[in-house]
C-alpha cells in the first residue's frame, strides 16, 4: 500500500512558507500591503476609477471650478468627492492620474538604480583590483552628497542638454534618470559585499573550471545568490524615490504641469493655502503621505522577514 500524497500547488507551498507566515502574523505588514495594493491598482487603472480624464479639456467645465468636496456646485449642481481645482478638474481624478506618474517614475528610477548598482557591485566584487577601486571611489564620493542634491544637479545638467522644445515631454525621463543615478550606490555596496563572499565558494570555482566566462558566472551563478538583500533595498529605495520625485516636482524641477505627479499637485495646491481652497492641497498631500509611509513600512517588514539574523 502506498499513499499517494498530492503535490501541493504553488500557492499552497507559498502559503505555508516562513515568509507568508510572517506576513500573516504582522498586522503592520498586512495593512501597508493593502494600502500599497489599493493605491497601485487604482492608479494603474486610473481611467476606470476616475470620474473623468482631467487632462482632456473637453471634459472640463470652468463653472465647476473651486467646488468644495461633497457639496453640490452652485451653477451646475455637480458633486465631487474631493472637490475641484480652479479649472473645474475633479481633484480625485487628478490624484489618480498624478499617482500614476509618481509611481511610474519611482518604479522606473529604482529599476534603473538597481540595474546600474547591481552590475557595478558584481563587477566590482568579482574582478577586484583597479576596477573595484575606481567604482568604489566614485560611490564614496557620491555618497558624501545627499542623494536629493545629486538628483537635482543631474536634473539641471540633463535639462540643459535637452533641446527646449522637447523639455516638457522629456521631463519625466530626465527625472527617472536623475533619481535612478542618485541611488545606485546602495545597491552597488551591498552586492559588492555579497559577491566578495560568493566569489570564493565552490560552485563558482567549479563554474570557472568548466571554462565559463566571467560574465556568465556573474549573472547566471552569482547574481541569484545575492538578490535577497537587493529586494529589501529596492523596496526602501522605492519609498525614497517617490519622496524624491515629489520633492523635485514640488520645487518645480520635476514633472511638468501638463503631466503632473503628486508633487506637482501639491505645488499647485500650495497656491490656494491662503485663499481657503484647502482640498486642492490636502488630498494630494495625504495620498503622498499614505503611499510613502506604507511602502516604507513594507520595506522595514521585508528587511526583518528576509533577514532572520536580525530578529
Amino acid at each position: 500500500m502506498t499513499t499517494v500524497t498530492k503535490p501541493k500547488s504553488r500557492f499552497a507551498r507559498f502559503w505555508d512558507s516562513d515568509f507568508a507566515y510572517n506576513f500573516r502574523r504582522s498586522p503592520v505588514a498586512m495593512v501597508s500591503f493593502a494600502i500599497v495594493a489599493i493605491l497601485v491598482i487604482s492608479s494603474m487603472f486610473a481611467p476606470l476609477f476616475a470620474t473623468m480624464n482631467p487632462f482632456n479639456p473637453a471634459n472640463l467645465d470652468l463653472l465647476n471650478g473651486f467646488t468644495p468636496p461633497g457639496t453640490p456646485n452652485d451653477f451646475t449642481g455637480e458633486r465631487f468627492l474631493m472637490g475641484t481645482d480652479d479649472q473645474g478638474r475633479d481633484v480625485y481624478s487628478t490624484i489618480l492620474y498624478g499617482m500614476r506618474v509618481s509611481l511610474f517614475v519611482g518604479f522606473a528610477a529604482v529599476m534603473l538604480g538597481m540595474v546600474i548598482g547591481v552590475t557595478m557591485g558584481l563587477i566590482s566584487g568579482y574582478f577586484g583590483g583597479w576596477t573595484d577601486t575606481i567604482i568604489m571611489r566614485v560611490a564614496d564620493v557620491q555618497l558624501t552628497f545627499p542623494s536629493i542634491l545629486v538628483a537635482m544637479l543631474i536634473f539641471g545638467v540633463a535639462k540643459g542638454f535637452t533641446p527646449v522644445e522637447y523639455r516638457d515631454q522629456l521631463a519625466i525621463w530626465v527625472l527617472i534618470l536623475a533619481i535612478g543615478l542618485s541611488d545606485w550606490v546602495q545597491f552597488a555596496r551591498v552586492v559588492r559585499g555579497a559577491t566578495l563572499v560568493e566569489r570564493n565558494k565552490e560552485y563558482v570555482q567549479a563554474a570557472r573550471l568548466m571554462g565559463r566566462g566571467a560574465f556568465p558566472i556573474l549573472f547566471r551563478h552569482i547574481l541569484p545568490n545575492v538578490l535577497s538583500p537587493v529586494l529589501v533595498i529596492a523596496t526602501i529605495s522605492l519609498a525614497l524615490a517617490i519622496i524624491a520625485e515629489a520633492t523635485l516636482s514640488f520645487l518645480g524641477v520635476g514633472a511638468p504641469s501638463t503631466q503632473p505627479s503628486l508633487g506637482t499637485l501639491i505645488r499647485i495646491g500650495q497656491g490656494y493655502l491662503f485663499s481657503g481652497e484647502w482640498w486642492i492641497l490636502f488630498f494630494p498631500s495625504v495620498t503622498l503621505l499614505a503611499l510613502a509611509l506604507s511602502v516604507n513600512m513594507l520595506g522595514d517588514w521585508l528587511r526583518d522577514a528576509l533577514n532572520p539574523k536580525l530578529r
Binding site: I243, A246, T247, F250, L251, I266, Q270, L273, F274, L281, S285, L288, L289, A292, L293, N296
Partner: peptide
C-alpha cells in the same frame, strides 16, 4: 522622519500663518 520636508513646511505654514 518619514514626512517629506516640504510637507512639514506647508503644515507649519497652515497652522501658524493661516
Amino acid at each position: 522622519v518619514s514626512l517629506p520636508t516640504f510637507l512639514i513646511g506647508i503644515l507649519l505654514i497652515y497652522v501658524f500663518s493661516v
